[in-house]
């Protein structure tokens, strides 16, 4: 038995030293890593709402509307209330994610204060085909979403003119990625009843400011 311990002593001591070192490194860096994540989300929130100066995180409780509503599932979602320089609310920034063509696509969607219109969106994470699908991150595609409705299912269409309020121009050669973005946005906003919550929260916020 003692023989075993002596043989393994180097491994054991080394493991201990490494464990302590890693804990120390983690202790030093973890706050910074956390701050990075928050900063990235906040930057995205400021980017997707025009005229934004500050974004503050708000937690909303949601009751999801499932296809089998035996027991309503409540979940929490962190959204950003985006305000301008005078502290007046100019919109919302909402996280959304769903399946894309290659892997999950993660977005931050910008909305007007009443949550009825989309202002813009930013792709946080995607693995879409380089040169085709990953054009969803480009300004050209993003600009098509400004002013579109959140009440109806969005459609990525091939035509370039006469687009309805629920239609956006699809990227040539990447219809699936384009439609995926539309679906992700619509599902997150409409199916969970998020838009009503946001609109209500905006009204409350305005009331508070009014006092």
């Amino acid at each position: 038995m003692i023989g075993y311990v002596r043989q393994a002593s180097l491994v054991l001591i080394l493991s201990l030293v490494i464990g302590v070192t890693l804990a120390a490194v983690n202790d030093k860096l973890a706050p910074r890593i956390k701050a990075n994540e928050l900063q990235a989300r906040e930057d995205a929130a400021l980017e997707v709402v025009p005229g934004a100066a500050k974004a503050e995180q708000v937690s909303l409780k949601l009751t999801s509307i499932d296809s089998k509503p035996k027991q309503p599932i409540t979940s929490e979602i962190d959204v950003y209330r985006v305000v301008d320089e005078n502290g007046k609310q100019v919109g919302w920034a909402v996280p959304a994610q769903g399946p894309g063509y290659a892997d999950t696509i993660k977005l931050t969607v910008g909305l007007t204060p009443d949550a009825k219109r989309i202002t813009d969106f930013k792709v946080i994470y995607n693995q879409e085909t380089p040169g085709l699908g990953n054009k969803i991150t480009g300004k050209a595609f993003r600009s098509h979403f400004a002013g579109k409705t959140t009440a109806k299912e969005l459609l990525a269409v091939k035509q370039t003119t006469d687009l309805g309020e629920d239609e956006v121009q699809a990227i040539t050669g990447a219809t699936i990625s384009s439609q995926a973005v539309c679906d992700i946005i619509y599902k997150q906003l409409a199916q969970t009843g998020l838009t009503e919550k946001l609109a209500a929260a905006s009204r409350e916020g305005i009331d508070e400011n009014g006092k």
Partner: peptide, 24 residues
């Protein structure tokens, strides 16, 4: 036991490198 020692050492430095990248 040498391979074990190599692996543990390497994995420790990889963790450090990974955390550094995530932080900076």
């Amino acid at each position: 036991l040498r391979i074990l020692v190599f692996t543990v050492t390497i994995s420790a430095f990889v963790t450090i490198a990974d955390r550094m990248l995530a932080a900076f």
